[in-house]
Simulated assay, not measured.
Amino acid sequence: MMDALERVTGPANATPGAASSAIAPVLAGPPQPVRVLAAFPAAVYLEHATGLLAVVAADGVQHPNAVVLSVGVAARPLAGLHVGQEGTVGDGAIGVGQLQVTVARWFDPSPHLRATSPPLIAGKIADARAHLMARTGSDSHDLAVPADAVAEALRSGDMDGVLTAVRDLVGAGPGLTPAGDDVLAGLFAAVVTLSPAVAPEATTTLTRTLALTGGAVVDRARHVTTAVSAELLHHAVRGEVADLAAAVLHAFTGRRPLTPALDALLAVGATSGRDLAHGLITGAALVLATAEAGDPDRPATTVGAR
């Protein structure tokens, strides 16, 4: 794959961008049609044969399926694009109307977290919950109960239980990325990325259950929620997240300051950042509880404890 990533070039006069390696097969592959699904000043979402990719301004959110342009919103790089407009992607380039983008470099949307200990991550979870309480007035909301139900089903290895529990989350709420999807994406991404950093052996059942059910969850999402949200869930079950969520995950392991990372995430959208943060905390608590249950010298933590 790296050879393919290094070979892409694209038009010499195009705007350069940094592309997620998660969408390398589409970007580096042969040209194929794309269609504008949604267009905003900071981001444009393009449908292709197998999914969805985003083109975002430099000061937009670096999604796990994004090509991040070298210029910001003020330069109006996405002006003039509209829903239904058609173009092409492939051979290291994207062309839609006047927008011409070439891949200049790649980024990895999967945060590789350093090993950490249950006591350290327990403190970070407590701090994160306290900060959310201070910022939002509550460390819980209407989706906390179904999120905890998904977590408990994952912890027990109950695949049917996972699929039943996600029905109360997938597509719940309005917007481009409904609140239930944001919570679920955060939960899944935290499980995938934190499990090997905290206790890979103790969390084997947890990660296996998620691997076996993730495809079914994403398939359901493609039928009941927005295309943008379903695509982000597809990446979340693989541990691929936006840069702001990755920063919070790194903070849980002590690699970055927690408060600035949470504040940056909470600033995203009307509620998306908050809901994604809830999901990350719930997933982190699930990993912690599973790790502690595998240690006979430590008392088990309840996943939904707040």
Rank of each mutant, 00 (worst) to 15 (best):
14 A>N: 11
16 P>Q: 09
21 S>Q: 09
25 P>I: 05
27 L>G: 03
37 L>T: 12
38 A>Q: 12
42 A>W: 09
48 H>L: 05
51 G>R: 02
55 V>T: 06
58 A>L: 15
60 G>E: 09
61 V>H: 10
65 N>P: 02
66 A>C: 07
69 L>H: 03
75 A>Q: 12
79 A>M: 07
100 Q>V: 14
112 H>F: 09
113 L>D: 04
117 S>A: 10
123 G>A: 02
133 M>F: 12
137 G>F: 01
140 S>D: 15
142 D>G: 12
149 A>F: 00
149 A>I: 02
153 A>L: 00
155 R>P: 01
158 D>V: 01
158 D>H: 01
166 V>W: 00
178 P>E: 08
179 A>I: 06
191 V>Q: 01
201 E>W: 09
206 L>I: 03
206 L>S: 01
213 T>H: 01
222 R>A: 11
223 H>R: 12
227 A>C: 00
229 S>D: 10
232 L>F: 13
233 L>T: 04
236 A>C: 00
237 V>E: 07
249 L>K: 03
250 H>V: 04
253 T>I: 10
254 G>A: 00
257 P>A: 07
264 A>W: 07
270 A>S: 15
273 G>S: 04
275 D>L: 02
278 H>S: 12
278 H>N: 12
282 T>N: 10
289 A>Q: 00
294 G>S: 12
296 P>H: 08
302 T>K: 10
303 V>S: 09
304 G>T: 01
